[in-house]
Design a protein around this nucleic acid. Structure first.
Lengths: 218, 218
DNA sequence: ACAAAAGTGTTCGATATACACCCATGT
DNA sequence: ACATGGGTGTATATCGAACACTTTTGT
């Protein structure tokens, strides 16, 4: 039996949630888009295999990565019996993908407008999306989609893009300020109209809250 | 690469949460307890393999079963590279296990007092327990641990056993009655002192609530 | 009659939601 | 000056937590 890892990699670009897909160059499903992945080596753990694939496809290493679910229906790969352990990853929009190697055929596509995908990858993406939406409401994964410094409006746009609904600006900000997990920086984002305060995520503070069982309410 | 499914099967006996474990009769880990499981056949889906193992070990078929997580560290099985897709199952206390075959060496052990287990099975049980506690708070999995007819006190005891804390009787009952997912039966449980009203879970009603996004608050 | 478990309401604090205007800057 | 996005407070409804006594039966 063969085992692969496949990774649903999300990012946000101009307020739209996107997935990284690669166009297949070999059968089966030549020409179709698929999520990046590959076979697990004999001497590597599942998580390591996922990290390796992620690095190979995107060139980035320190990103949010978690195991999603294992898909193992009999007919899911025409080549034979292959079960896949799916992962999902979040990377911030400011990180450029490596432009070399197979990445030539890698593209960010909006999750709302995906073409027909190879294998059972549409199902895997649906599952990842559901997990992401759930996690957004009680964890801080949302910050993983932003660069280290960000404005409150940018953060709110991440939530709105993923949850697909508008949030109230005042309520959003009040909740964040009560949680005290953001650290304002002595810097402002200029370029729009009025300059916006920049913040960074105060992870240490969040760990403490999580240990106390205090969750992230959105 | 070899793929197994292993199943953490929970039940509640006299107010204590227990896991089904089998004593290993063959190496590795002879004599140690392990959670039931086995190799996935070439022609069966993961879920089917889990159902088959569950049936083989317990003789029961229509139980709550969900995929938990896949464990694939390199050294987790001394025989070679084996990754396992772990499942967790809930069965109600009123169902007797089959007494035949390998079940001779199957035992229910309290989750709080487990001996040293085979493989990485202690880790798998920890993970299952965490999942069970979380799911209890926003789904109706709790009912799966009870027979079809049950009293409110019995239901509360299930919650208390799993969450390991006392719940307030009045608050517990009020929440349930607001949800309207229980149907009182024209029957009473006698044998204690004052007879207790019996209820059954009104699954249909619950499906509607879940579709509306109303969750189960404990 | 007494012991044991079943059943039942109210109060209070915390949290979520709805809602509108002024401010600082670029053009 | 005006257009654009940044920033701020209050009122109300809802939900969760704390808390004690009466009722019905078996012995």
């Amino acid at each position: 039996m063969q085992v692969t890892v496949d990774i649903v990699i999300f990012t946000i670009q101009s307020g739209v949630l996107k997935v990284l897909l690669v166009k297949r160059g070999a059968p089966p499903f030549v020409g179709r888009f698929a999520i990046p992945g590959g076979f697990v080596h004999e001497d590597e753990a599942l998580d390591q295999a996922a990290l390796r694939e992620l690095r190979e496809e995107t060139g980035v290493a320190d990103v949010y990565l978690e195991q999603l679910y294992s898909f193992g229906d009999v007919g899911r790969d025409p080549r034979g019996r292959v079960i896949t352990v799916a992962y999902f990853a979040l990377i911030s929009a400011d990180r450029p993908l490596r432009a070399d190697t197979d990445a030539a055929e890698a593209k960010w596509l909006a999750v709302g407008q995906l073409p027909t995908l190879a294998f059972d990858h549409a199902k895997i993406i649906d599952y990842a999306l559901e997990r992401l939406r759930n996690k957004l409401e009680y964890t801080t994964v949302g910050f993983q989609l932003l660069p280290e410094k960000f404005t409150l409006t940018e953060l709110q746009e991440v939530y709105e893009a993923i949850l697909e609904r508008k949030l109230d600006k005042r309520n959003f900000r009040r909740k964040l300020s009560l949680l005290r997990i953001l650290k304002p920086l002595p810097e402002y984002r200029r370029g729009g109209q009025r300059p916006a305060q920049l913040y960074r995520f105060a992870a240490a503070r969040f760990e403490k809250l999580r240990d106390k069982g205090i969750l992230f309410p959105f």
